[in-house]
């Protein structure tokens, strides 16, 4: 870490998990340049449940990918604690994802050849101090489906396996990309309940990106993204519980 970024970072609050500073991202799409992020500044607090809300193309996925160490910004810095992710090597980013980040994807991305329990074990086997795969699945209410293969599970169940897989390593942050995007509202709520429970019981910092405004009501803080810029940011005075949500 350079002295320059060190000094920048010393001013930061200990409670800040992510410090995003002046991040831009430009994609080269054929012969056209597309700016996905145009200078984003934002901090995410420890234990906070944040919803990043925006329409398709607003840059919210790009931001999540950068936070998760899957992508690097064109300009600007992203600090995870004291670590500057923009200066990390590929293998450092892999280590970062391996030990600190839990991912939940819109299309679950389970391994079809592994059962629910094994899909969780695939991550706990390489983590530092993980929970038992069975315990993680119990947290999402799937204690009875441990030995089912993905093809034998419903969409909602598959997504809950994905959540169990993400949290089983006891990650510092949980990043969810449209976790209910492929589900009907009833199943979506079950999945959100699982996320809420993790956030409350384990205190895992959670960032959910969605274009579904209804979900925003369960967040501590809501960040609107429009055309690659941070728009409205607000805190919910009263958070709704997941089962109270409607969309």
């Amino acid at each position: 870490m350079s002295p320059d970024s060190q000094s920048q970072h010393q001013a930061l609050d200990e409670n800040v998990v992510f410090h995003v500073h002046g991040v831009t991202k430009v994609y080269q799409m054929g012969e056209v340049q597309v700016s996905a992020l145009r200078g984003v500044d934002i901090d995410l607090q420890r234990g906070e449940f944040t919803v990043l809300l925006g329409a398709s193309g607003s840059g919210k996925s790009t931001l999540l990918n950068i936070l998760g160490g899957l992508d690097t910004p064109t300009e600007g810095h992203v600090f995870y604690g004291e670590r500057d992710l923009t200066r990390a090597s590929e293998s450092e980013l892999t280590e970062y994802r391996r030990f600190h980040v839990g991912f939940v994807f819109q299309f679950y991305n389970l391994i079809p050849s592994l059962t629910a329990r094994e899909n969780v074990a695939v991550v706990t086997e390489i983590a530092n101090s993980p929970m038992q795969p069975g315990d993680a699945l119990k947290l999402v209410g799937l204690q009875d489906r441990l030995d089912h293969f993905p093809a034998q599970l419903s969409g909602g169940e598959q997504q809950r396996v994905a959540i169990a897989r993400a949290i089983a390593k006891n990650p510092d942050v949980l990043l969810c990309d449209e976790p209910t995007g492929a589900l009907d509202s009833k199943t979506g709520i079950v999945v959100l309940q699982a996320l809420q429970r993790i956030n409350e019981e384990l205190g895992t910092t959670t960032a959910v990106i969605t274009h579904n405004a209804g979900i925003a009501q369960m967040a501590d803080r809501v960040i609107h993204l429009t055309d690659g810029l941070i728009g409205n940011v607000y805190k919910n005075d009263t958070r709704l519980r997941a089962d109270e949500l409607k969309w």
Binding site: T94, E95, R97, V101, F103, F105, N109, I111, V122, V123
Partner: peptide, 16 residues
Amino acid sequence: NRELASLRVLGFHKAE
């Protein structure tokens, strides 16, 4: 492709 990329996202190294 998809399965292997997912594992990379979950923190698996290239060699793994």
